[in-house]
Design a protein around this nucleic acid. Structure first.
Length: 225
DNA sequence: TGCCAGGCCCTCTTTAGGGCCTT
């Protein structure tokens, strides 16, 4: 899989549309299944952290007073991620905050988001539920630190992404998994996932030589040089 | 004044309702 950025926000609430702001962000860069870089920072948006959120995340208003300005953090984060496609657990949540915080500094997102929650619902239907922590324990993935902190949650989501990747390659026989495929898969109705993956696996393998179509493409390009 | 998300997914659905998931 190409280089992908798995991100996670901690915020003061559930929606930027109701005045909620980000309090912490983290990104984990994954390349060929390995974590190659990390970014994490608290961010001061000049807001008060509600008591419920402080209890949930451990992030307090006092902690944010000493944090760098939210705009500075978002600019650094956008530069760190670059054009890598994004993944988050329940991406609709993180996407809203990503776009809202970037808009405040006059920037916008160009890359697509894939959602590990939607993918897990399709590929891990037997899990007791699809919360990030539950999936991590259920799949036997490593603990990454304090839950509900951005870096620990981003690393958990990255591990989950690796587990889903393994399911697609070992269980469903896909020779290659791209971010674009994940974006297509997360839109497929759950009842049709098996048929979709069977068609994808059939298309990905050369019908005569029994080789991954992607590998054939690479060899062909190399041969012309 | 009081309230305040929203997309996905399932079902006792589709002219709807409610749980899940994120903070």
């Amino acid at each position: 899989m190409e280089r992908i950025a798995v991100i996670d926000f901690e915020t003061t609430g559930i929606s930027p549309g109701t005045g909620c702001r980000a309090t912490e962000i983290a990104a984990v860069l994954v390349e060929n299944g390995r974590v190659v870089d990390r970014y994490q920072s608290l961010m001061n948006a000049g807001v008060r952290v509600p008591a419920f959120i402080e209890q949930l995340t451990g992030i307090s208003t006092a902690m944010l007073r000493d944090a760098p300005p939210a705009g500075q953090v978002m600019a650094e984060m956008a530069d760190f991620v670059g054009d890598a496609p994004l993944v988050a657990h329940n991406a609709s949540f993180d996407q809203k905050f990503w776009d809202a915080e970037l808009a405040l500094i006059g920037r916008e997102r160009f890359q697509p988001f894939a959602c590990s929650l939607l993918l897990a619902r399709r590929l891990l239907p037997d899990a007791p539920n699809h919360k990030l922590g539950t999936l991590t324990r259920w799949a036997g993935l490593p603990a990454t630190g304090q839950a509900h902190r951005a870096l620990a949650d981003a690393e958990m989501a990255a591990n989950l992404l690796g587990h889903l990747h393994e399911q697609l390659t070992s269980h469903y026989g896909l020779p290659r998994v791209s971010h674009q495929l994940l974006c297509e898969l997360q839109k497929v109705p759950a009842a049709k996932v098996g048929a979709f993956l069977a068609r994808t696996a059939d298309r990905a393998w050369h019908p005569v030589l029994g080789m991954p179509a992607a590998a054939l493409t690479v060899r062909s390009r190399s041969g012309r040089r």
